[in-house]
Design a protein around this nucleic acid. Sequence first.
DNA 1: AAAAATACTGAATATATGTACAGTATAATA
DNA 2: TATTATACTGTACATATATTCAGTATTTTT
Lengths: 206, 206
Amino acid sequence: MKKITSQQQRVLDCIQIYLNKTGFPPTRADICKELGFKSPNSAETHLRALEKKGFISIESGTSRGISIINNDNKLTQADDEYPVVGLVAAGSPTLAQENIEQTINCPNKFFDSDFDYFLKVKGLSMKDVGIMEDDLIAVKKTNEVRNGDIVIARLEDEVTVKFFQRKSPKIVELEPANEDYENIVVDLEHQDFHIEGKSVGLLRKN
Amino acid sequence: MKKITSQQQRVLDCIQIYLNKTGFPPTRADICKELGFKSPNSAETHLRALEKKGFISIESGTSRGISIINNDNKLTQADDEYPVVGLVAAGSPTLAQENIEQTINCPNKFFDSDFDYFLKVKGLSMKDVGIMEDDLIAVKKTNEVRNGDIVIARLEDEVTVKFFQRKSPKIVELEPANEDYENIVVDLEHQDFHIEGKSVGLLRKN
DNA sequence: AAAAATACTGAATATATGTACAGTATAATA
DNA sequence: TATTATACTGTACATATATTCAGTATTTTT
């Protein structure tokens, strides 16, 4: 399996989430709407790339003819079944089958906002706001975040959970809630940065 | 759930089989091809009947917008309404009606152990283990607790959440997880002390 | 006995959707 | 350095598809 780019991963995740939510795959237009593209051809080219790399198959001439390859029996998945993924590094697929440690059955109106998956936290960079190792953060996939939101972000190869602060059009600061850690200043022009989503809740099992 | 006819069952099976095979739902024409119908309207009317009876849902105006409604998850996913109570003082009954702020619908196998109610946390005495103000602790009512358990205990008029440590047959220590607070030494012979239950999990809504 | 549901054929149509074509721009690779 | 891959916007169009309308016939329900 060839390596996937971060944008292609977003498209792949988008398909999986759409499937979980609706029971059928998205159209090109649906993907554009979800990810903010303005031309259906943006989705089309990403889909072709994903097909070429073996992540999906596309039935030619068929509406919504997308199927994700490798995932065994996710079709019978209940509406309220949410995947739990680890805090994966190195740009590896967030919602890819191999990263899903378990699934949790949970009402989809459980938190104030709807959400897409649980992220298992590693490290203590947000301990001062009560986010501890192995806690499960309910993550809503979005890139519409505000200053002060707890976001799941990828900077180069590293995925982290931090407070989001936009300092200027080109500068974003990722702030930990732990004095042992330092703020991360992101130069949007020269660094590969992407907001995966934001935290809408937390779950801990003793 | 109303009863299904044999032809409607064939259509429902056809949808499931098509889903298993391709990863996306069939069109009306696909169903006709599979079952030998000669008009797409044959499939259409069956689909409408299945929708009316609650077996499937159909997204209007959407190609392949069929999803099978899983009613068998009622067997595995037993949800219950759990009360949320505040950290009430003055020995008043924890689950008394006037203390219930709201209820939360939650699967009863949600945490590793079963539980009885959610307790809304006040104060920061357990902040170092990530229990923050307004967090909801899933409480299992029991007095069988072990050293190191996070317990909900009442000492005289005060209800608190602390670590439990039995020091001797007659002495129990309640330990906070916050250096600004001090351990509470409880003399079981001379103080009114009672274990309400223990924490089996935590829930936070952002 | 009348009404409603079931079970179809067949034709027609608005629109939902895939997909090609024409561009622009940057990064990665050979 | 040339080439390929990535990452888009924007327009256009053929066709895939849902959906309505008009019928016919049988069975079930009221």
